[in-house]
Write a protein that binds this DNA or RNA. Structure first.
Lengths: 106, 106
DNA sequence: AATATATGCAACCAAATGGTTTCTTATACT
DNA sequence: AGTATAAGAAACCATTTGGTTGCATATATT
């Protein structure tokens, strides 16, 4: 049961849910209306998203509004940071590194 | 067999592989030395990464150097773009939206 | 009080995942 | 030519995943 953000966003339905509630908090029923699967399936996705804290709940009577925990989304952004350095500064230099290795071996 | 970037980066070992070859192109054997699992396991990860074009190969004799396809990594960055707008401009407004809904229902 | 609605939880199931072991192929070394 | 090494492919296996159906619980509505 590895429950981290990366595993959470791996599923396309979950990414769609995230995109939905990013705009505005929604109840499980309202979210489920946007998909072909059952409410329970969506509920399970919400549970996974909640477990990794990508989503927060707000109870209102018998309804539960789910909304995105934007802070957590930033963690993906932070992970990308290390590669951003590469694609901004080095660009095609990876090929150079490769060429260097090849020459050294010959 | 959904083979997209998000599913590819879901696995921690694959993220580690990505981080490794981002710095410099490496052969499967060299990569496998950094992990506890067998070379074949790493090889399977490389296949998945190759299938979703996150990684490219460079053959050199019997060796195959794997390196990161930085362009593909940008796709994750692009997906984050929609949320970046939210966390930069709106910030705590999601809670406001929620409150609004609550009030409207009461 | 009785019924309807919103939600979560548990049991179950087929398919996918991550790993292993074994085998084959191709290139390098002696 | 014969052996060693690099790597991929296939078969197999336990576990996880995403989904379903059915049931329980709590809050609204009448």
């Amino acid at each position: 049961m590895r429950r981290d953000i990366f595993q959470a966003i791996a599923d396309p339905t979950r990414r769609a849910i995230i995109a939905l509630i990013a705009v505005q908090a929604m109840t499980p029923n309202a979210i489920a209306e946007n998909f072909n699967s059952t409410r329970q399936a969506v509920s399970k996705h919400l549970r996974i998203l909640t477990e990794c804290e990508l989503v927060k709940q707000a109870h209102n009577g018998r309804e539960i509004y789910y909304s995105l925990e934007i802070k957590k989304m930033k963690e993906i952004d932070q992970w990308l940071e290390q590669f951003r350095q590469i694609w901004e500064t080095r660009f095609n230099q990876l090929d150079h590194v490769l060429t260097t290795i090849k020459k050294r071996k010959k």
